[in-house]
Computed example of a mutant assay.
Amino acid sequence: MNTIEQQLWDYIDGNLDESLKKAIEEKIALNADVKSQYEDLLKLNLVFDGLDLDEPSMSFTRNVMESVAMVPAPVAMKTKVDKKIIYGIGGFFVISLLALLGYVFYNVNLEMPKFDLKVNLDFNLEKYITPAAIYAFLFADLVIGLIFLDQFLRKKIAQK
């Protein structure tokens, strides 16, 4: 659609401001081609106004919903990957890592400097391991054990 045709449609629809409206009116008055195009568009607009829009029947929505309900729901595709491929890729990476580790050990020159480290490992365990700490540890283990037991039993019930 060219610009003059768009401007004429905007003029017919009343979407132009005053300055553009006056400019289009001058073009219509001065140019015979623009005037004939304007008249054709006016006739076309009258034809469009005279058309009755078809309305769907009252049960249209119900009919569409019933036809949608009859179509089976799409099932997610489950692709099966060959386990040999997975094992092959995993084996390649394991062999590559082992080869890299072997290369590093072969080329490393490991020399430890002599240092004198005196560590005092004599500390009082009774100070840190109190009956309250033992009870807290056992309580936490009991709670974790009960959570795992609950999950295990729920899986058993779901499988049945």
Score class of each variant (00 low, 15 high):
3 T>C: 05
3 T>V: 13
3 T>S: 14
4 I>V: 13
4 I>Y: 01
7 Q>P: 03
7 Q>H: 10
8 L>G: 02
10 D>C: 00
10 D>T: 02
10 D>W: 01
10 D>Q: 02
11 Y>L: 10
12 I>N: 00
12 I>V: 10
13 D>E: 15
13 D>T: 03
16 L>R: 01
16 L>K: 00
17 D>Y: 04
18 E>T: 08
18 E>D: 14
19 S>E: 12
19 S>H: 10
20 L>R: 06
21 K>F: 00
22 K>E: 07
24 I>S: 01
25 E>T: 04
26 E>I: 10
27 K>G: 03
28 I>Q: 01
32 A>Q: 12
32 A>H: 06
34 V>W: 01
35 K>R: 15
35 K>N: 08
36 S>F: 02
36 S>K: 06
40 D>A: 15
40 D>V: 09
46 L>D: 14
46 L>W: 04
46 L>H: 05
47 V>A: 12
49 D>K: 14
49 D>E: 15
50 G>V: 05
51 L>H: 06
51 L>P: 04
52 D>Y: 04
53 L>G: 08
53 L>R: 11
54 D>M: 14
56 P>Q: 09
56 P>M: 09
57 S>M: 05
57 S>V: 04
57 S>G: 14
58 M>V: 11
58 M>W: 05
59 S>N: 15
59 S>F: 07
60 F>D: 11
61 T>K: 10
62 R>V: 05
62 R>H: 04
63 N>M: 06
64 V>S: 09
65 M>C: 07
65 M>E: 13
65 M>F: 04
66 E>H: 01
68 V>R: 07
69 A>V: 03
69 A>R: 11
70 M>T: 12
70 M>R: 09
71 V>T: 11
72 P>V: 06
72 P>A: 07
73 A>F: 03
76 A>E: 07
76 A>G: 02
77 M>N: 11
78 K>W: 00
78 K>P: 00
78 K>V: 07
80 K>L: 05
84 K>C: 10
85 I>M: 09
85 I>V: 12
86 I>A: 06
86 I>Y: 02
86 I>E: 04
86 I>D: 05
86 I>H: 02
87 Y>A: 06
87 Y>L: 05
88 G>W: 05
92 F>T: 06
92 F>V: 06
92 F>I: 06
93 F>P: 03
93 F>R: 00
96 S>A: 15
102 G>F: 13
102 G>H: 02
105 F>S: 08
106 Y>I: 11
107 N>E: 08
108 V>N: 05
108 V>G: 03
109 N>R: 13
109 N>H: 13
109 N>W: 02
112 M>S: 13
112 M>C: 09
113 P>W: 06
114 K>V: 15
114 K>D: 15
115 F>V: 15
116 D>A: 13
120 N>Q: 12
121 L>D: 08
122 D>E: 13
123 F>A: 11
126 E>S: 12
128 Y>C: 04
128 Y>K: 09
129 I>N: 06
129 I>E: 06
130 T>S: 09
131 P>S: 10
132 A>F: 14
135 Y>P: 00
136 A>C: 00
138 L>M: 11
138 L>W: 03
140 A>C: 05
141 D>L: 14
143 V>E: 00
146 L>D: 01
146 L>Y: 08
147 I>G: 14
148 F>W: 15
150 D>M: 13
151 Q>S: 08
151 Q>C: 09
152 F>N: 01
153 L>T: 01
154 R>T: 03
154 R>A: 08
158 A>G: 00
